[in-house]
Design a protein around this nucleic acid. Structure first.
Lengths: 208, 208
DNA sequence: TCCGAAGGTGAGCGATCGCTTAGAGTGCCC
DNA sequence: GGGCACTCTAAGCGATCGCTCACCTTCGGA
């Protein structure tokens, strides 16, 4: 795998684009709190406390608690989509590209599982217009995966009868990693990614 | 498939064992509310209102709001485990039994997706002792699936290198159905179950 | 040297939360 | 008919929530 693939999506500096410093610290604190307790169970006092600030300081940088969730969701989804696309658009046949996409996407959901948990499981807490924006990003992930599967079927490399259904299953499998992955568990994000890439290639009946 | 397999887990009368009538109505209302908005975003006034009662009536039948979630989680997990085991213990080879187990388990998570959503995604809202009880039930589901896969590998019918990892992936795939399944979507619970059974048999490299 | 913008705090407002209490209605057994 | 257990309601308590306001500090530029 290439170096570009490894660092795509800013896995090293997840929130480097957020400024100023206090706003970034609040956002990082919110990600931790939301991932641990969930959006509704997290208080603004808890977020501010984790960032080493008073409760009122939060409202200098963000209008509401929901805006914090919205910013986290949008940036997180964009990172995940970037990771997926970078791997999906590399050179090679459908099997190589699907395997690479799943490996990268899963590695991101495992390695950044706190962000991923918020991004994937707290969507309902957003208002209608914010949620619509995020759903649009999600559809692009779906289209990217479905595109490779369709290509593989057309090229005779995959044997899939229900392409939309298999696409949903593949994405569901990858996303749910964020729910069960534990940092102190028996597997590294890399190992889970490799396992899942193999499983998905079996699901689409890839010839090897 | 057998009639026993179709009705296992009380898919027709999900809360028939809960008495008296008012307690069951409150529990059904809580399932709906928790599934729609999440545990922490649901108020006791909302639950009582859906059941057509005053807020205070809730505390005649349940000590706290958390006890309601605990009861829902325990009963729901027991139903899901019963569905899984009934299908897993039927006659036939590993491939037939794994396919049957996945089909039934997925059909339950799709058909009872409101219950399943609460049961699978609101676990963190439970206290330590309640959560431990539920986690124990979940381990039994894991053991049931892993058992079949190990059997299939031993019999030379499956080709799986990482049995625990594949088991986690299979269960994750099935459980996450509760998150994305929509009643008015393009597929019935039966259809999703059939699709997923096929996908899982491919994942384990079942010979056919 | 003075000033205004920017970033921060302590105190607290109005609303709403989970939950409790006092008492009323109902049916069943003697 | 009287007593009692059970079920439910109206009212509201104390705590905590998201968020606001008045005020303080810091600092770069004219």
């Amino acid at each position: 795998m290439s170096t570009a693939e490894e660092t795509a999506g800013g896995e090293r500096e997840p929130w480097g684009e957020v400024a100023p410093d206090a706003a970034r610290r609040l956002l990082v604190a919110a990600v931790e709190a939301f991932a641990e307790r969930g959006y509704h169970a997290t208080t603004t006092r808890d977020i501010a406390g984790r960032a080493g600030m008073s409760p009122a300081a939060l409202y200098i940088h963000y209008k509401t608690k929901e805006e914090l969730l919205h910013r986290i969701s949008r940036i997180g989804h964009e990172k995940a989509l970037e990771v997926l696309r970078t791997a999906a658009e590399r050179e090679g046949g459908p099997a190589e590209r699907l395997g690479s996409a799943v490996r990268s996407f899963v590695r991101w959901h495992a390695g950044q599982h706190t962000v991923a948990r918020v991004v994937q499981y707290e969507l309902d807490a957003l208002g209608p217009e914010s949620r619509a924006e995020i759903v649009a990003l999600r559809r692009q992930s779906d289209a990217a995966v479905r595109g490779i599967i369709e290509e593989g079927v057309a090229a005779g490399e995959f044997t899939v009868t229900d392409v939309p259904g298999t696409t949903v299953a593949v994405l569901s499998l990858c996303i749910d990693v964020a729910r069960w992955f534990k940092v102190n568990g028996p597997r590294t994000p890399d190992e889970v990614g490799a396992l899942y890439a193999d499983l998905v290639l079996r699901m689409v009946g890839a010839k090897h």
